[in-house]
Nucleic acid binder design. Structure first.
Lengths: 105, 105
DNA sequence: TATAAAGACAACCATTTGGTTGTGCAAATA
DNA sequence: TATTTGCACAACCAAATGGTTGTCTTTATA
């Protein structure tokens, strides 16, 4: 097992998806992110670290606060993969349709 | 920690993404899936089990073979979430744009 | 200035994950 | 019929994951 730290793994955890959703509406510091998340601040900080490591969050210091900002461009990798798989999947049915159409003649 | 078995977790593993990609081009049995995957057949079978448990694969017996077929409708959940997050994220910039435009006057 | 708040860092822990090997059985094939 | 093939089931294992608590430093605030 190699340590994978990519976008797919980043969004695999429900807590991290909530964090991303919240940050997509505007920057927040770590305490604010964890406010209604029933989890220690340290646990939140760990999730933030993972998201930062795979480029989905950028931080900037503001006094004693660490303000987190979402960087959602990375999510394209996910949509691209999903789209590609669905495309191939749909082509199968189209091929089948064409085959069925050709046998009808 | 609760056992999560959803689409997001299903596609988090690179091997499972390869399996889904291959199956999106047509049904295969477990041996065929594992053919160029440098991993024991049992490991493949475990991945198949996970994909089946979250509805991304359906099986049908054919003699002694277990033929796997992709069910990619589930992937909508992923695209939906990504789209929603990106939408909110884009709205932030639009709001900023409007604000900047209004101060320019 | 004394205290509270934000968060970094480390140690620890249980569970999950992703793999392995071995055994056994049913179906296909020589 | 004897052998091979496809795969299920179980036991096992190391590493990763997702959480905890405690200590410490720095920055705000009463």
């Amino acid at each position: 097992m190699i340590e994978r730290r990519d976008v797919f793994q980043a969004i695999a955890d429900p807590t991290r998806r909530i964090i991303i959703s919240r940050l997509s509406q505007g920057p927040l510091n770590i305490t604010q992110i964890g406010e209604d998340l029933d989890m220690s601040k340290q646990a939140i900080a760990k999730h933030i670290k993972i998201l930062r490591e795979c480029g989905m969050i950028v931080m900037n210091q503001k006094g004693r606060e660490q303000v987190c900002e979402a960087q959602l461009a990375q999510l394209d990798e996910v949509t691209d993969w999903v789209m590609q798989s669905r495309k191939l999947w749909n082509q199968r049915f189209e091929k089948l349709d064409r085959f069925l159409a050709s046998t009808k003649k």
